[in-house]
C-alpha cells in the first residue's frame, strides 16, 4: 500500500529530477548541439570552461558575489526586522504584509519595475538623486554597480518572506525562557546571542541553505534587467548555461559541463553547510 502511494511521486522525481542530473553529467563529455551526432571529447569542455575561455570564471565570480551578498543581507535584515517588528501591533502587521507582497509577484515583473526606476534618463532614482543635488548614477549600465542593483532587487523581493519565517520562529521560543532572561536583567545583546539566536538557529540554517540555492540559480532578474551586461559584469551561471545551450549554436555539451559544475558547487556548499554550520545548530 505505501508503495502505491509514493510510486507516482517517486517516478516523477526520478524522471524529471534525477535522470536529468545523471544525463547532464553524461552529456558534459560530448560535443553535441542537438542536431549533430554526439562526439565524445573527454574533458575538453571542462578544460575550455575553466582554463581556456575566461567568461565562465567571470560568471562564476559574479554568481558567488551575488549569492554571498544576497544570503548575507537577507538573513541579517530578516533577523533585524523580525526583532524590530516582533510586537503584535497594527502597523507592524501591516508592514509585514507590505514587505511580503513583493515575494508573491513574479521576478520578471519586479525586474521590469526596478529597471524602470533604475532607468538612467528618466528613472525615478536618478530623479531622486537630482532632487538632493547629487549627480546621477548609471545604475544597471555601470559594470561595478549593476550586480548590486540586482542584489538589491532580490533582497527587496524576498525579504518579507524570510522575515515571516524568522518572526514565526521567534514566536515559537517559549516565553518562560525570555522572561527568565528578563528577570535576570541580561543585557540585550547577550540575550540575543545566548538565547534568541540559538533558539532560532534551525530556521536560520534552513534559510541559509534555501537562499544559497536560490541565489545560485538566479536568472530571471538578470535576464530582464541586464541580460548579463555590461560586458559580462552580471553574467551568472544560469544565464551562461542558457546562452550556450540555446543561443550560440546550441552547444549543449558545453552547457552541460557548465551545469555539472554548478551542480558540483551546490553539492559542495550543502555538504559544507551541514558539516560546519549544521553542527552549531541548536535543535529544540
Amino acid at each position: 500500500m505505501p508503495y502505491v502511494m509514493v510510486a507516482p511521486a517517486m517516478t516523477f522525481l526520478l524522471v524529471f529530477t534525477f535522470y536529468p542530473l545523471a544525463n547532464l553529467v553524461y552529456l558534459s563529455f560530448f560535443r553535441y548541439n542537438l542536431i549533430s551526432d554526439k562526439v565524445f571529447i573527454g574533458l575538453t569542455n571542462y578544460r575550455n570552461l575553466l582554463f581556456v575561455k575566461k567568461d565562465f570564471i567571470q560568471a562564476l565570480k559574479n554568481t558567488a558575489l551575488y549569492s554571498f551578498a544576497v544570503v548575507f543581507f537577507t538573513i541579517l535584515l530578516a533577523i533585524l526586522f523580525a526583532l524590530w517588528l516582533e510586537k503584535d501591533s497594527k502597523i507592524n502587521r501591516f508592514l509585514q504584509k507590505s514587505m511580503f507582497t513583493p515575494y508573491l509577484i513574479a521576478m520578471v515583473s519586479t525586474a521590469y519595475i526596478w529597471s524602470w526606476m533604475f532607468d538612467v534618463d528618466s528613472g525615478l532614482l536618478n530623479a531622486a538623486l537630482a532632487f538632493v543635488k547629487l549627480s546621477p548614477l548609471r545604475w544597471l549600465n555601470d559594470s561595478s554597480l549593476a550586480i548590486w542593483c540586482i542584489v538589491i532587487v532580490s533582497v527587496w523581493k524576498s525579504l518579507g518572506y524570510y522575515l515571516l519565517i524568522v518572526l514565526a520562529s521567534l514566536k515559537s521560543i517559549p516565553s518562560e525562557i525570555i522572561e527568565a532572561a528578563e528577570l535576570d536583567n541580561t543585557p540585550w545583546l547577550r540575550k540575543f546571542f545566548r538565547i534568541i539566536l540559538p533558539m532560532i538557529s534551525p530556521q536560520i540554517f534552513f534559510l541559509l541553505i534555501t537562499i544559497t540555492i536560490s541565489s545560485f540559480k538566479v536568472f530571471d532578474s538578470v535576464r530582464v534587467m541586464t541580460n548579463g551586461g555590461p560586458g559580462n559584469a552580471t553574467d551568472v551561471l544560469v544565464t551562461y548555461i542558457h546562452r550556450y545551450a540555446f543561443q550560440m549554436n546550441m552547444r549543449v555539451g558545453y552547457a552541460s559541463a557548465a551545469g555539472s559544475l554548478l551542480l558540483g558547487i551546490l553539492m559542495i556548499l550543502t555538504v559544507f553547510y551541514f558539516r560546519f554550520a549544521g553542527r552549531r545548530v541548536h535543535y529544540q
Binding site: 509514493v6 536529468p20 544525463n23 548555461i241 542558457h242 545551450a245 554548478l262 551546490l266
Partner: peptide, 25 residues
Amino acid sequence: MLALVMAAFMVPTQITFITVYIMMS
C-alpha cells in the same frame, strides 16, 4: 526515498532543463 525527496528539493530546475528539453522534444 525520503532522502531523495529532500535532495530533489535542493536541485534547481535551472540544472535539469537541458535534459528535460531533449525529452520534451
